[in-house]
Write a protein that binds this DNA or RNA. Structure first.
Length: 974
DNA sequence: ACGGCCACTTA
DNA sequence: GTAAGTGGCCGTC
């Protein structure tokens, strides 16, 4: 793999200075620079062709506007004259040129091209790529690697020198007198007059290199400046230490820019003649058109000049009026806003202030009803490189709802709403007829939008993108790549703020239009297709606009708060995987459930009659209030307790106690409750979830609502299908493989205890797992001095409860409750456990201290779990946080592991040539559907992916074990 | 029609 | 003792 990064901005200025004759096309637009740029780009790709040709490529530009360096040092690059007038209109054209060559063109507001190149170079190097940066900017020399994995390529023609000059460690040494890793220290001292980096006055490259070589690095030098013999030099260093530090910050390239496109997105594409020639012809570049026509064996006459570019609409010539007043307000606010912290943190805070100051204007939103308007909308997206999108549908179920409209927002404050499915009122029964007039045909709109939505170089930003992915997939659109503001927020702040409305209120101080205000509530609530298009447009466009704003506010925080890796490697790639799983669904056998419902109903009725008999009166068994009154008031049973609201407690544990004391009614109620629960929640409810279109049940996974990083499942919840009791398991037999298929269930064995052993570094536990022992029996034997052979089941049961207790942040109170023993005895157990497994107590104390100090704890993959009330004045609340902070890294790390497994599963199965569909996730278990007879090929791959999911990010010090079984239904596979 | 509470289900 | 979601009852709006 070989990544070629081109310093686009460098190329533009070189083209400008190297090509004195001013080229203009027929309408007077200066294009000489664009031409030079095209020639250089083309020549570079030709020169690089060969054995070592780049497999990935991008051109990186400086975006306009401030960067974090302006906040650190306002004079940075301040002496630069503004760009020459004739160059300005050529800037956007060079971006178009890059795209015309089918090369990703990347620029990001707030970052210099050098920072973006540094980020990609490091990403690629870490992924085992070779990297070439086409630039002669000395600021990039800090990136050069001694092993040659990152090199610069200087392509400026210089008389008497070869056309291509590689810059490796030796060349860097020649230039700076130090190895590449010391370049920033040298630059910090000698400064840079071109960029206005101050450095230490009077110190040049030679002296700087000598000092850094002698002292090792800048900080050491500054701390030992007193030792320098030359008095003048010593004084200069002491006086200007701060200036040197600031200079170092200025020249240090940021390697964690939150880039929108991953390395995959930079894969080289063949040149597309239908993109290239319309551009070249619009620019009136005859020579290069001819050369490329020959090379590509294409006929340029087959293509028309690009109308937009030829008409010069989007590239106003200098002097054209500039819009935007709110921007200057925002800029003033930004200047006044001094933010502490690192570069990325300052940048994030500055972006927040800037975005928050831009008011929402509903009048600026546009309704798209003509092909021309749609084209303009799409052109804007291509010019921008990213777009916020929101789809509007007739309902909340992504497997059922119909598309009503799509909204795109490319600029903050703007939004194009494209209605496609609004219906006239009273038209519910007319099927495909009755659309409101004036809407573009849905097929036409989707075909046009596919160009944007399926373009690898255009980032689609949404709020809860999984929903849009599923809807669009049903309409034949495979949207990628994506960013999701909900998931970014989740990576940063956990599930605290989810919905768009909450995020908007919290970050932008903006209250969004509620759907209820638009459509009413209750059974008379209108569906989206029944809304007036104008009303719908305001709502939809606001959502897209707000999503874009939130993206600008939240995305920079990822780098500033060190959760980029978590978001990029876990959250972002998981969303499409979940979309696939939800779309597949699982087959549920109606007949089995119907039979069970009948059985449960009969038996429950018998229990009910028995209960009325025993109580001596008729009452509602489903009412805990009535039951409590009968048991404790009417029958006068002693020892009843009250819940915190003052009602009689009648939970299963209470009733079990009463039954043991000889009250048969209590047992009857327990049995009745269990049966009615199974019937009401499962056998009666599940058939209503069978989708008439697919004949399967499609749950919805929430990726962003669990504190610890687990998924949750709803509508229906397929993560709490019964398994414990015999009756409960019958429900699982209704989850079946269809004709010709088999289900596979693969589950992690004791994943949380293994994770605990790793995190807390408990040697005894690790050894036990290494040897494949029964972990609860081993615990029991350690604690109670009982041999594993012939151990009574009750002893093992107690140890098992203790092991779970440890994971849950044990308390004597809780353990006593669980085991039905005295608090003092439970306390003694815990003390013994801490003695036998040294390290556990340390782990617990460490988490408690961490959460109090930082307000969060962390999983082994860097997921932060926030506890805002860790220092609460309420003691019971504080104890709660302590227990949760002990549990969260364990539960969360296990959750991260299975998330990683899920992300890798589909590509790995595909690579192994196995046809297996991942259907469900139940925290430590994955359910697959495979063609009958392929179980034995699928299972080893599934196990390998799950067992190795932590690597290479984390090398676990315990073995991970996965058990997998195949069968025709879930009960037997489990 | 909505929301709190209690009960039950899972890992 | 950790983390979730759903359904029925019942009071309030």
């Amino acid at each position: 793999m070989h990544l070629l990064l081109v310093d686009g901005s460098g190329y533009i200025f070189r083209a400008f200075h190297a090509l004195p004759p001013l080229n203009r096309k027929s309408d007077g637009l200066p294009v000489g620079c664009v031409q030079g740029f095209c020639n250089m780009l083309f020549k570079l790709t030709q020169d690089m062709d060969g054995d070592d040709a780049p497999t990935h490529m991008a051109v990186i530009f400086d975006a306009k506007g401030k960067t974090f360096r302006d906040d650190i040092y306002p004079q940075y690059k301040a002496q630069r004259p503004p760009a020459p007038e004739e160059l300005v209109p050529q800037f956007p054209l060079t971006r178009s040129a890059t795209r015309a060559f089918s090369i990703p063109s990347i620029e990001m507001e707030g970052w210099e091209a050098d920072d973006i190149m540094a980020t990609y170079a490091c990403m690629a190097r870490d992924a085992g790529f070779k990297v070439t940066i086409a630039s002669s900017d000395k600021d990039l020399m800090q990136l050069v690697e001694p092993d040659g994995s990152i090199r610069l390529l200087d392509t400026i023609p210089r008389p008497g020198q070869p056309p291509l000059r590689w810059i490796g460690p030796d060349e860097v040494f020649t230039k700076f007198g130090v190895t590449p890793d010391k370049v920033i220290d040298v630059q910090a001292l000698c400064g840079d007059s071109v960029d206005n980096v101050p450095g230490v006055p009077g110190i040049g490259v030679k002296t700087a290199a000598q000092l850094i070589t002698e002292y090792g690095d800048l900080e050491t030098l500054l701390s030992r400046a007193e030792e320098i013999k030359q008095p003048a030099r010593r004084q200069k260093l002491i006086d200007n230490a701060e200036l040197a530090r600031v200079s170092k910050q200025l020249v240090t390239l940021e390697q964690k820019v939150p880039v929108e496109i991953d390395l995959d997105g930079l894969t080289r594409q063949p040149i597309n003649p239908s993109a290239l020639f319309p551009f070249l012809k619009a620019m009136e570049f005859a020579t290069i058109t001819k050369r490329l026509a020959t090379l590509l064996e294409a006929n340029p006459d087959d293509f028309e000049p690009d109308a937009t570019l030829a008409a010069n609409k989007d590239n106003p010539v200098p002097g054209a009026p500039q819009k935007s007043t709110s921007l200057s307000v925002a800029k003033a606010k930004l200047a006044a806003n001094m933010v502490p912290g690192s570069g990325p943190a300052r940048h994030a805070a500055a972006e927040h202030a800037r975005i928050k100051a831009i008011p929402v204007n509903y009048e600026a939103y546009e309704i798209v009803t003509t092909p021309d308007a749609l084209e303009r909308c799409i052109d804007k997206v291509f010019a921008k490189g990213h777009v916020a999108i929101d789809t509007e549908t007739t309902g909340l179920d992504p497997q059922q709802a119909d598309l009503v409209g799509i909204c795109l927002s490319t600029e903050i404050g703007e939004g194009c709403y494209i209605p496609v499915g609004h219906r006239k009122s009273g038209d519910m029964f007319e099927g495909g007829e009755g659309l409101v007039e004036g809407q573009l045909p849905i097929g036409f709109v989707l075909e046009a939008l596919k160009r944007v939505l399926q373009d690898k170089s255009i980032l689609k930003i949404g709020q809860n993108v999984k929903y849009d992915l599923e809807v669009l997939t049903r309409y034949g659109v495979a949207m990628a790549p994506i960013d999701d503001t909900m998931l970014i927020s989740y990576a940063l702040d956990g599930p605290r703020y989810n919905g768009l409305d909450v995020l908007a209120e919290h970050w932008l101080d903006h209250k969004t239009i509620t759907y209820a205000a638009l459509a009413g509530t209750g059974k008379n609530q209108k569906t989206f297709d029944q809304l007036e298009i104008a009303e719908a447009a305001r709502y939809a466009a606001e959502d897209a606009d707000i999503t874009l704003r939130l993206w600008h506010v939240l995305k920079p925080r990822l780098a500033a708060e060190n959760v980029t890796a978590l978001y990029e490697t876990i959250e972002r790639p998981l969303a499409p995987v979940l979309a696939h799983m939800e779309a597949r669904g699982i087959t549920v056998d109606r007949q089995i459930l119907a039979r069970l419902s009948g059985d449960f109903a009969q038996r429950a009725a018998a229990f009910e009659a028995e209960a009325h008999e025993l109580a001596g009166q008729s009452f509602n068994l489903g009412s805990p209030k009535q039951l409590g009154e009968i048991l404790f008031d009417k029958m006068g049973i002693e020892g009843g307790t009250k819940t915190k609201t003052g009602a009689w407690a009648t939970g299963a544990d209470v009733l079990e106690g009463l039954a043991a004391k000889g009250h048969p009614l209590a047992r009857t109620i327990v049995d009745w409750r269990q049966l009615t629960k199974l019937k009401g929640t499962y056998t009666d409810a599940l058939p209503n979830y069978i989708n008439p279109r697919t004949g399967r049940v499609h749950t919805s996974y929430s990726q962003a609502s669990v504190l610890t990083g687990r998924l949750s499942s709803n509508d229906p919840n397929l993560q709490n299908i019964p398994v414990r009791t015999e009756d409960g398991r019958k429900i699982r037999t209704a989850f079946v493989a269809p004709e010709g298929k088999t289900l596979i269930s693969a589950d992690y064995s004791q994943i949380e205890l293994r994770v605990l052993a790793h995190i807390a570094d408990i040697q005894a536990l690790k050894d036990a797992f290494e040897e494949g022992l029964d972990i609860h029996a081993m615990t029991a034997s350690e604690m109670f001095n009982v041999p594993v052979e012939g151990m009574p089941s009750d002893v093992r049961r107690r140890a098992k409860a203790i092991n779970f207790g440890i994971i849950y942040g044990i308390s004597a109170f809780g353990l006593a409750n669980q085991l039905g023993i005295e608090r003092s005895v439970a306390g003694e157990y815990i003390r013994t456990y801490f003695e036998r497994f040294p390290g556990i107590k340390d782990y617990m104390d460490a988490q408690k201290a961490r959460v109090k100090a930082d307000g969060h704890v962390m999983t082994i993959f860097g997921r932060k779990i926030q506890f805002p009330n860790a220092n609460s004045g309420n003691p019971s609340e504080r104890s709660f946080v302590e227990r949760a902070s002990i549990n969260a890294p364990i539960q969360g790390s296990a959750a991260d592991i299975i998330r990683r497994a899920m992300i890798r599963m589909e590509p790995e199965l595909k690579k192994a040539g196995i046809e297996a569909d991942m259907l469900l996730q139940v925290h430590d278990e994955l359910i697959f559907e495979v063609p009958e007879g392929t179980e034995d090929q699928a299972i080893p791959v599934i196990k390998r992916v799950m067992e190795g999911a932590a690597e290479p990010a984390v090398r676990l010090t315990v073995p991970i074990q996965v058990d997998a079984h195949a069968a025709k239904n879930w009960d037997e596979a489990h």
